[in-house]
Design a binder for these strands. Structure first.
Lengths: 350, 350
DNA sequence: TTGTACGCGTTATCAA
DNA sequence: TTGATAACGCGTACAA
């Protein structure tokens, strides 16, 4: 036999009811008598019918149950950032409440044959970050009338944003250091652009920072230490923080008594660099992080850091998506970090 | 106006051609005269039509362009494993060749409202790992006639598997240590079950290991060091390796001269434990890892390890999926690790 | 509570 | 090279 899959009409016929009745049995959207339900279920079992075909259902309903997450980078890179991972956790949870799942998409237009924003059956999309490509993606989605939410970026009018008070939180950390008596402070920033190599930021380079998160956090630090030298790391990694820390500690002039790192991973690297140089943290060098993630292998240090509600951010994005799918309009949200004092900051010695 | 979205028939009418012709213009599956193509494209532009509705297309074609990846854990946990991340990279790449994207799904049946294997419009699914839940998932997918590929697990007859020569690779590492002259060796295994707490494995617990990867690697080590004591870590994390390392170094009896860790992260932790105890690696203690991933923050150590082709594994899974969707049958694949000598192993001192 | 009728937006097939 | 037609499998008003 040619083994055509059973459809809901087959089941209905087998059960001796109308197709619509069978449909209702599976969707549960209307009351059905127990007897009928059982007949339908039995028939389905006999025919090996496992439920409505999602493809047909999604055409009929106009919903596919799929929310795309558009990433700027390869998965491997994107998910090496613990904050991203946590956000995805929250997002998954958030969209699950509308019965949706998360489809991973790269915003790489020159990838031929790849599933794209134009060809995937999306109900909505979440963009993370914001760059030139993101803007293209936004155009496409707008043309398709697909609801969009942006995390840490600007999607333009009508696009809900999920953001963090990066500047304020970083200022708080800087104030903490100032309050402890630190005056000579160095800053390690996140990667500032894709092309740029790690290194000291001069005034011009600093104005040129395209990565909003980096710029905002830098501004927060500058609110307290306007003249602190800043070193741009290549990425948010321990190894990059180590390199930055080495550069900072090797620089001529008086050694800083504290380093403000724009991420916990960078901070961990800076601590390594300090240890390597024979300095004690926090006695000889205070270090602050950002994010409040668990840095595997950093114990016994507990970073003084700004804890960002990453999971909540993701969940909020999911909720926003849910709201837009419901037809209501989702509001933008600004999340607040929590200052957490660890054992990596203290008054400068002497 | 109620702003109904333009359909392909609208475009066809506007362009003065048949709907089927317009369809061909967008799919490019048949030759169309340039003049006609241009008329259709212009009409589309005028109407703000951005291309065929993926939902309708997927019903008609019987393909949604979506491959599900079924994970056992929360995303945050799953992606904290660098090997998983790399595999996902390869998988994404592999399935992209059939124009498909990756949908993240948890195999959590008690999550209500969540999109599931039954309700998502999948063309195929990739299972990672293998546990009780996985078997359920397999059942569902088989009933739905959805092609499945399993990575590091057994999907039963007819289900292509992507595997690693864990035992052989681990044996090779162990032999390397034996060749260097090591006789007293301890083993740190991956987490062996969800419930089990970290701790020494007795013979019974060892027989009970459900996680195949852990069991296979352990067997490989045992091929060379039948009596080496084994400590099961709680998870593949530096911190867990640290804990294991402490336990091993604190144990009574003669201290081992080498530790075989079942992952690079665990190995990194063991190295930390050694440093903490004032031991030098590799002089006082040799340590081997497994996976060959980049462990952020481990420099200047370069682990002696077995490099597994994680990206290739993922890509192979993607290719297998592609093949099955093409109607051909995909073969199971066994990947081989490459021994890589770093600076964490040497002859035992004295 | 059940059944009837229709359309969701495409695309494959075949004939012209 | 183009056009007409018929599914694809389902959900939902509406009437019975």
């Amino acid at each position: 036999m040619k083994a055509r899959r059973a459809t809901i009409s087959d089941v209905a016929r087998e059960a001796g009811v109308a197709a619509s009745t069978a449909s209702v049995v599976f969707s549960g959207r209307m009351p059905v008598s127990d007897a009928t339900r059982q007949r339908v279920l039995d028939a389905a079992q006999r025919l090996g019918y496992t439920g409505p075909d999602p493809r047909a259902a999604s055409l009929r309903r106009g919903r596919s149950g799929i929310v795309a997450v558009v990433l700027e980078e390869r998965l491997g890179v994107a998910f090496s950032d613990p904050v991203m991972t946590l956000q995805m956790d929250g997002l998954t949870e958030g969209v699950a409440r509308v019965g949706a799942g998360v489809l991973l998409l790269r915003d790489d237009p020159d990838a031929p044959g790849e599933p794209s924003l134009t060809t995937a059956p999306l109900d909505a999309a979440v963009l993370v970050g914001c760059n030139a490509r993101t803007r293209e993606s936004l155009e496409i989605l707008r043309a398709r009338d697909v609801p969009v939410v942006v995390i840490e970026g600007d999607g333009g009018p009508g696009v809900p944003q999920i953001r963090l008070d990066n500047r304020e939180a970083q200022r708080q950390l800087a104030s903490h250091l100032a309050g402890l008596g630190h005056r000579r402070v160095a800053i390690v920033t996140l990667g500032t652009t894709a092309e740029r190599r790690p290194g000291w930021l001069d005034a011009e380079a600093e104005r040129d920072i395209r990565v909003e998160v980096a710029a905002d956090r830098l501004a927060g630090a500058r609110d307290v230490f306007p003249d602190a030298p800043a070193y741009a790391a290549g990425a948010s990694l321990i190894d990059e923080g180590l390199a930055a820390g080495r550069a900072i500690l090797a620089a001529s002039g008086e050694r800083p008594t504290a380093v403000i790192a724009q991420s916990d991973l960078l901070a961990a690297g800076v601590i390594r660099a300090a240890e390597e140089a024979g300095l004690r943290v926090p006695d000889d060098l205070s270090v602050t992080g950002f994010d409040g993630v668990v840095v595997d292998g950093l114990a016994p240090y507990a970073l003084t850091t700004a804890v960002q509600p990453a999971v909540e951010k993701g969940r909020a994005a999911g909720d926003a998506v849910a709201a837009m799918l419901d037809g209501s309009t989702a509001a933008s949200l600004l999340f607040t970090c929590t200052f957490r004092e660890g054992n990596t900051t203290s008054a400068p010695r002497g």
